[in-house]
Amino acid sequence: MKNIMIATFDMEVGGVERSLISMLENFDYKNYAVDLMLYSHQGDFLKLISDKVNLLGEIPQYTTFRKSIKEILKDKKYSLGLSRILSKIIADILGQIKKVEEPGYYQMQLMWKYALPFLPEVSKQYDVAISYLWPHYFVAEKINAKKKIAWIHTDFSTVETDIKMDLKMWKKFDYIVAVSEACKTAFLEKYTELENKVVVIENITSPDFIREMAKEKVENSMLKDNRFKIVTVARLSHAKGIDNAVRALKILKEKGYQNIAWYVVGYGGDESLIKDLIKESKLMDSFILLGKKTNPYPYMKEADLYVQPSRYEGKAVTVGEAQILSKPVMITNYATAHSQVKDGLNGCITELSVEGIATGIERLYKDSEKRNILINNCNNTNFSNSNELEKLYQIVN
């Protein structure tokens, strides 16, 4: 039996975490013993971890990655606190010099680089160590394993990273797993010399589990809302484009479409910015933030249209889940969009802009026949793909 360790940040509600839960649900525990290392034991998905997985105890130094600088200093972890302050200052300066829209990726790289000397190693020897979420410095530097695998869930052509720093880290891995072909292509445009390491393994989806979860009874005024309901499940962050969604709904209201309500399930750093934008756009009764939900599926099930207004994605887990629930889906034309949706068949792809989102919704709102075609095509598709795990077992062995 092979010993595998999988490492990630925590089990907060998110697409990456949901895909990990599905993978662990479908894993072959007859042949593999799986240890799960969470830097922090927090998040509503903790209770969904398969009982066949051995959840390792927290290591105090690693819990700091989800804490504020103030909390770290309060915990007397001064070296880690100072490394965080330094990474923030340098990332902000680099961001201004290079005019980077989102210097957070630089900051995360630097945060790990400066923190590494103060982080303990894990003593157990593993056959395989899997780092499930970038940045992968923990598995690269602090785990003793015969084989190392790193997962990529994002479109790397859209994020600003220090390529030289990342390359040193990537080279410590035997394999890099991309969640879609488009994700792999975008990654290799940036890191061409890693071509022989990259394989594609799609996020594991579990249609029976999703359909079962969608039956859960929830109390919400959304269920009594008779308007045309758009639903989005996403982090409230720049990447997910929820600000563009608010602006698009404003355009539709100004055009006279008063019968549309947009519900967003999720939470994140941009919440206050988005709330201000909703207020400013006078959309308080029609653009509704439902907040964090461990089970988003009953809300998805209520959608007349599922919309993903993202600026970039690797492969949006939620889009696949909406398709499993036979919802008409519309996504923006981010770089990896065509690897997720066959335009006009199992969803629609619209221009990545505020006007593009508004136009795409208007078309589908007016064309119930088109929506029915999308619904029927999703109904007739088998979205189960647990066989993707065979690809993982092949590289593990």
Rank of each mutant, 00 (worst) to 15 (best):
M330W: 01
Y334N: 05
L289C: 09
M300L: 15
H338S: 13
D276Q: 13
L345T: 11
K282H: 13
Q340F: 00
V341Q: 06
A337H: 06
P296L: 07
E313R: 01
K279S: 14
M284K: 15
I278V: 15
L289H: 09
L290K: 11
P328T: 12
T318A: 15
V319R: 00
F287I: 09
V329C: 15
D304M: 08
L283V: 13
K315W: 05
K279Q: 13
L289G: 09
L277W: 04
D276A: 12
Q323T: 06
T294N: 10
K275R: 15
L345I: 15
E271P: 01
T318H: 03
L283A: 12
I324T: 11
E280G: 01
G314E: 03
V329M: 08
D304H: 14
E280S: 14
K301Y: 11
P328G: 12
M284A: 13
Y334G: 00
K293P: 01
Q340C: 08
I331F: 02
D276R: 13
D270K: 09
G291M: 08
T318K: 02
G291L: 07
K275G: 06
V329G: 05
P296Y: 08
K293D: 06
K301F: 08
L305A: 04
T294F: 00
V319I: 15
A335M: 00
M330S: 06
I288T: 06
V341A: 07
L325N: 09
A303V: 04
E321G: 02
P328I: 11
R311P: 00
P309G: 07
N295L: 10
Y297A: 05
Y297G: 03
G320R: 12
P328C: 11
K279Y: 11
V317M: 10
E321R: 04
P296M: 08
K292F: 01
D304R: 08
L289D: 10
D285C: 07
Q308W: 00
T332Q: 02
A322R: 01
P296K: 09
D270E: 15
T336Y: 03
Y312F: 15
A322L: 04
K327E: 10
L290R: 11
E313S: 03
G291P: 03
K301T: 09
D276M: 07
N346R: 01
V307P: 00
Y299G: 05
G320H: 12
P309V: 07
I274R: 04
N346K: 01
V317H: 09
A337C: 10
V341T: 08
A303F: 01
L277Q: 13
I278H: 04
S310H: 04
E302R: 03
G314Q: 05
G291Y: 06
A335C: 01
K315N: 10
M330T: 11
A316T: 05
R311D: 02
I278N: 03
K282G: 08
Y299L: 09
N295T: 12
A335I: 04
K275M: 11
H338W: 00
Q340A: 14
